[in-house]
Design a protein around this nucleic acid. Structure first.
Lengths: 149, 149
DNA sequence: GTAGAGTGTGTGCGCACGCACAGAAACGGA
DNA sequence: TCCGTTTCTGTGCGTGCGCACACACTCTAC
């Protein structure tokens, strides 16, 4: 037990909101990552790639993943390498552009994602559903929409 | 311009809120980190340590920083090394416990933090104040408070 | 047709970070 | 007093990640 209890000092509401966003995002990401690692040996970065691929039935060019995902484009390449080694995704050359590569979830990949998504929901329910009501959820969604623009 | 526009597929509102939190936190952190690096060659992790130190007039034990900060305790040790090398913080042995180390902001550290905090506010105003109203800020603070507990 | 610019992808490199561990010191019981 | 346990800090180690670069391919202008 530490005697001194440090505080953030005199900060405005906007400052608190900023820090709170980063804190909540980082903490939640770490929590879900640990859950996914324990259950499936699957890092959160792999999960995010599979999440975007799962939402699309048509093959997705790698550049699109780099643009939409939190990962950098080189990192997408490495994650796809790992997923491909496990047979969860497939790389296919793009029909009209020999430079581009299209990526698709294999059936094994869809199954693995479904399981991983279930554990993600369970891990989130522990610290999320029990503390936040629907109004909070709506507020978060509007904030996200406003910041994305 | 990519022809395919991937979406996240059919996800519940809670799923969107979860992803939005991580996305917003990561994006904002990267944005502020770049601003701090360009203006002061000062990473966000260093800034966070100085933020907690600035809120406290009394010396802060290193363990408290490890507990309150987003950084791991070993990383706190390294960040303090770097800050100490620049003369921004000082390490002093704790009075009653020879194991513990207390950390304080030097006057140069307080000045550097004030400048860095100003650039942080400016960087945040670009993408934050102009898009979020007071209701959003309040909502974020309540969400943060609920998740912290 | 060919040269130059622009775009899509993968790789060498360095850095930041967390985990596991080691060493020092306080604490508590025999 | 002395020894085992707990707590506090700092360091070796491996890993994930982004930046800069290299390469392949496409497109446009001449």
């Amino acid at each position: 037990m530490t005697r001194a209890e440090p505080t953030m000092g005199e900060l405005s509401a906007r400052d608190h909101a900023f820090y709170g966003l980063i804190w909540a995002g980082t903490t939640l990401a770490a929590h879900v990552d640990r859950a996914l690692m324990r259950a499936h040996e699957l890092p959160l970065s792999w999960f995010e790639v599979m999440l975007w691929l799962n939402g699309q039935t048509a093959p997705v060019p790698a550049s699109a993943l780099g643009a939409k995902t939190l990962l950098s484009r080189p990192q997408v390449s490495r994650v796809v390498d790992a997923l491909q080694a496990r047979g969860l995704v497939a790389r296919t050359p793009a029909p009209h552009d020999a430079r581009s590569v299209e990526i698709t979830l294999t059936p094994e990949g869809r199954a693995a994602f479904a399981e991983a998504n279930a554990t993600r929901r369970a891990a989130l329910a522990d610290v999320f559903d029990q503390r936040l009501d629907d109004a909070d959820i709506d507020a978060l969604e509007t904030v996200w929409a406003k910041l994305k623009a």
